[in-house]
Design a protein around this nucleic acid. Sequence first.
DNA 1: ATTTCAACTTAGCACAATGTCT
DNA 2: AGACATTGTGCTAAGTTGAAAT
Length: 589
Amino acid sequence: MSSFSDLEELVGKEVTVQLKKDMTIRGRVHSVDDQYLNIKLEDTCVVDQDEYPHMSSKRMKVYPGSGGGQKWTTLEHNGVLFPPPYKPHGVKMLYNGQPVDLTPEQEEVATMFAVMKDTDYAGKQTFIDNFFTDWRKLLGKNHIIKKFKLCDFTPIYEWHLREKEKKKQMTTEEKKALREEKLKQDEKYKWAVVDDVKERVGNFRVEPPGLFKGRGEHPKMGKLKRRIQPSDITINIGKGAPVPECPIPGERWKEVKHDNTVTWLAFWNDPISQKDFKYVFLAASSSLKGQSDKEKYEKSRKLKDHIQNIRDNYTRDFRSKDPTKRQIAVATYLIDKLALSAGNEKDDGVADTVGCCTLKVDNVICIPPNKLQFDFTGNTVEIEELVCKAIEGFHAGKKAGAALFDKLDTTSLNAHLNDLMPGLTAEAFHTYNASITLDGILHEETEDGTLLEKIDVYQRANKEMARVNEKIDELKGQMDELKVDLSKAKEGRSLGNDKDGKPKRNLAPEAIEKKISALESKIEKMEMDKKIKEDMKTCAHVMPKIKYLDPRITLAWCKRHEVPFEKIFNKSLLAKYGWAMDVDPDFRF
DNA sequence: ATTTCAACTTAGCACAATGTCT
DNA sequence: AGACATTGTGCTAAGTTGAAAT
């Protein structure tokens, strides 16, 4: 069972469905109910009522692509590739000015920290504290290193710079040799054979040890992510297939499973968050991934038949008397119109980000009659007046930090979405809106072959915008500095030091004024440039959402206009979209 | 009914590869 | 050829969600 479009063909046919690892049922497909197969079971077929209490033993609903299903029949692969063991460099760091002896293990972690000197992390207290705590565990109680303040990692940092330089200085041949060496090593792990088809493996490399780099103000940043051993890793492989040999002598895998209801080839527990898993999956080009990608788009296409109804409904409920209904209506609207994510509750101990259900009253500011401002992005968006009113209402009587949607969580929101259309999720809205827009654009402007060229131009323009803005900001910064200099110079004071700490040349006020006017005209020119570019970004906003665009829309366009696929998609996207290549030229999303 | 788990998918960054200009 | 800009790729953190466990 693969995609929904195939389901109709199954009506009346005998099917065998694997529900979970060691449990299959057999029966005749009675009908197709939206995404479900209604299967009339054989008389001999008994469904364990304990395991499936909601299903009668005569009929069964099966949702393809979700829990009910075998993912493969045979699976062969070679396991995972471990990072090479640590090679000590022997460069001594200083403590209180004195060189210190470190064991290779201790040196490894010191080096992890040392090489991060020129990143933002190196200056963050949380990062330093977490690193130092974990490192001291390795140093032991009686080690002379006690205070971070007395540590000087520069000798190691400088060694790292020298190594980097050495690498840069390598000849093209040397670099090529190194690359080929690596390729040769990877070859063994790169492939898996799934149901007799050779498929690429995605991430066969085990994550190397390092200091945890969480995004945002992550409380665990800097903690030591320890080295993963074979005894940490669970392998999943076909029953008859040879179990990959453990590459480290004297060690063995934690466990070997033969579970064909999942797609992972291996996993280990994340050392930073023991309850989380790190999986090894097949690459995006594999048919398993392609299938689920296709299902995602098919689900979103279904939204087309429901969207009018859904929008009518939530628009009506903006003024509902029932506050829960009102919140659901507004939440659905935000997801639909602003592509807001669902927003799950998160554990303590991770950086805070927001989605729809985790919005706090202080995250959004209403600007009547029809604008909304988000504090985390600073963006202001236009919304419907009724929504603005409703959100104002949700604010009423709540303290800062209170949930905006107090009657809502992801579970109830998802349940509601499921009522609107089986299988509907927040993400489906994003996919639907992005894809239907692109579909519209590509069918609208067909007079000449320049449309995609336009898109290309737009895309470039969009990226350039960001840079122009940065440049303008930078110039303005320089301007401020010059103005300060000017006033100092006029008073005959010294200009002080520049940002590298070197003293500035003391210039005459006239010279500074000249500089300022030059800068002024430069900024002016840039602003002009920006304006021109702004005019061009009409349809640019669709392209960056590549993950939400059904590739069949673009591929069908290519076929209609005789544009080679390679012009539009790069190599990896072409591989990823293999499942969509045979699309009908007249395909409509 | 509510919480937790397991399995995926997506996001976002850093660096490598490639392209373009001088 | 070297410098700079752009694009591609790999890596891994983070978000989502159906199902299982309380």
